[in-house]
Design a protein around this nucleic acid. Structure first.
Lengths: 127, 127
DNA sequence: ATTAAATTGTTATAATATAACACTATGTAA
DNA sequence: TTACATAGTGTTATATTATAACAATTTAAT
């Protein structure tokens, strides 16, 4: 695990301290004072951070959150809960869930080591 | 289950006979000869079709496929396999999987009746 | 027939994401 | 320490995906 580049570090720090998933253009607005001026600079850093598992993309929301499971590790098996009212997103780290999904076989007997699962419902506060 | 409106039917028929997920603007191009001229007409039909469970959105691909599980039923618990080479998408209908996920409880004991799961790997042909 | 709800048509625009090109920094191996 | 490959940066332009706002029309249920 090598160090992050300058832009990657700036953008990771921002996402990591955000209490909620951040969208790319919101990230852009927040880092313009640090010299990151163009969308592509943001997207390139995001791509890399996703690739190395430091952040995850919440696909249904087009937003990014820092990994809170095994940070600094490549992680391609992700699960989240998403509150449909307040949009709070929590990464789920459940050994039994990941075991179940990693071992799941489809009709053809095919297994999948990569997956993304998004649960939707109401969080504690919003219930 | 009422009938679909004109635009909804045109767009559902197109998606339903497509062997692969279709993107909104690809749908638009394909239905312009039928008088659907604007993106919003497509998106409105897609929204409705998703809402009533006739189609599903593949979130990681921004594309739509017809439901092949319990067509014509509202369905908010979806699972797909996606081939990372040829992009073939298959809806997974596994009673044990849906049972497991519907009964899954997070750390707070919370259950979720709605979820979307996308598995990634290589399909039979591409392996 | 009346009326509320859903659907349509239309223009404009917002939000999300990538292409292409030139240049710079970094790590590695001779 | 030079050379070389790889990764990262900066920049402009543009492609792709999606929604806002408003007026008119159709549909279905009284």
């Amino acid at each position: 695990m090598q160090n992050l580049s300058k832009n990657q570090q700036i953008i990771f720090d921002l996402i990591d301290k955000s209490p909620e998933p951040m969208k790319a253009y919101s990230i852009l607005h927040n880092v313009q004072k640090k010299g990151i001026k163009a969308p592509l600079q943001v997207y390139r850093a995001l791509d890399k951070l996703v690739e190395i598992g430091k952040i995850h993309k919440i696909e249904s929301r087009n937003a990014f959150i820092a990994c809170h499971n095994s940070s600094c590790q490549v992680s391609k098996a992700t699960a989240f809960s998403i509150c449909e009212i307040c949009e709070k997103v929590t990464e789920i780290s459940s050994a039994s869930l990941s075991k179940y999904l990693t071992n799941f076989k489809d009709k053809d007997g095919m297994k999948y080591s990569k997956y993304n699962l998004e649960f939707f419902g109401l969080c504690k506060k919003c219930r």
